[in-house]
Computed example of a mutant assay.
Amino acid sequence: MANHLYQGDLPQGLDLGPVVAVDSETMGLNTQRDQLCVVQLSSGDGDAHLVQINRQTYDAPRLKDLLADPTVLKIFHFARFDIAAFQHWLGVETKPVYCTKIASKLTRTYTDRHGLKDLTRELMGIELSKQQQSSDWGANELSAAQVEYAAADVLYLHTLKAKLDEMLAREDRTAIAEACFDFLPVRAALDLAGWPEIDIFAHS
Rank of each mutant, 00 (worst) to 15 (best):
Tyr6Thr: 01
Thr120Ser: 14
Arg80Pro: 06
Ala152Pro: 13
His158Trp: 02
Gln56His: 10
Gly44Ala: 14
Asn30Phe: 15
His114Thr: 13
Leu157Tyr: 15
Ile75Tyr: 08
Arg33Ile: 09
Leu128Arg: 04
His203Gln: 06
His88Cys: 05
Ala48His: 04
Thr31Ser: 07
Asp199Pro: 11
Leu192Glu: 12
Leu164Arg: 14
Ala202Trp: 12
Asp47Ile: 02
Glu122Trp: 14
Gln40Arg: 08
Arg62Ser: 04
Val97Lys: 04
Gly91Ser: 14
Leu160Phe: 08
Cys180Met: 14
Val51Glu: 00
Val147Thr: 04
Phe201Pro: 05
Asp47Gln: 07
Ala202Glu: 14
Ala189Cys: 05
Tyr156Asn: 01
Val20Glu: 01
Leu5Phe: 06
Leu192Phe: 11
Val39Leu: 06
Leu190Glu: 15
Asp59His: 10
Lys105Gln: 13
Gln87Asp: 05
Gln32Thr: 01
Tyr98Glu: 10
Ile126Pro: 05
Pro70Leu: 08
Gln12Gly: 06
Asp65Glu: 14
Tyr58Lys: 12
Val154Leu: 11
Asn30Gln: 13
Asp112Gln: 11
Thr111Asn: 11
Leu192Asp: 14
Cys37Gly: 05
Glu25Ala: 07
Ser204Gln: 10
Pro185Glu: 12
Asp9Pro: 00
Leu128Ser: 07
Ser104Cys: 10
Leu36Arg: 05
Thr31Pro: 06
Thr107Val: 08
Thr111Gln: 13
Gly28Ala: 06
Val72Trp: 10
Val38Ile: 03
Ile83Val: 13
His158Leu: 04
Val154Tyr: 10
Gln7Leu: 14
Gly115Arg: 15
Ser42Thr: 00
Pro185Arg: 11
Thr31Tyr: 13
Ala103Glu: 00
Ser204Phe: 06
Arg62Ala: 11
Pro18Lys: 11
Ala162Trp: 01
Asn3Phe: 02
Leu41Lys: 12
Thr31Arg: 15
Leu63Pro: 03
Ala179Gly: 12
Ala189Met: 11
